[in-house]
């Protein structure tokens, strides 16, 4: 079974012949960008960030990469706000999307 993977990571299964015998996954959910779920955007304020990486630790997606400072991957962040709530240094601002 050799699936055709498109450039955006989605799997090309258009014809019956492209399908496996049973529903067996052929690609990663990584191709599913969840940015559109977000109504608020976490913004890490570098000056206040102490590099504790708690935001990285608590992200359910995961959509934060550890770093100096950590980076929010806005392709996937769903805007749940856990990182904002858990940051012990109040270093993540919440910005409304689409303002």
């Amino acid at each position: 079974m050799k699936p055709k993977i498109r450039k955006d990571g989605t799997v090309a299964v258009e014809k019956t012949g492209d399908l496996p015998d049973m529903p067996v996954s052929m690609g990663s959910m990584k191709s599913n960008k969840t940015a559109s779920w977000r109504s608020i955007r976490p913004v890490i304020v570098e000056a206040r960030c102490k590099r504790c990486m708690i935001c990285w630790k608590v992200c359910p997606e995961p959509a934060i990469r550890p770093g100096d400072p950590p980076v929010v991957d806005l392709d996937y962040c769903k805007g749940c706000g856990i990182c904002i709530a858990e940051c012990p240094f109040d270093a993540i601002d919440s910005e409304k999307e689409g303002k």
């Binding site: 299964v13 399908l19 049973m22 529903p23 067996v24 996954s25 052929m26």
Partner: peptide
């Protein structure tokens, strides 16, 4: 690693 028997839409 693959998942077997996941949620399958009417498309498939």
């Amino acid at each position: 690693p693959r998942s077997f028997g996941a949620l399958t839409s009417p498309d498939y």
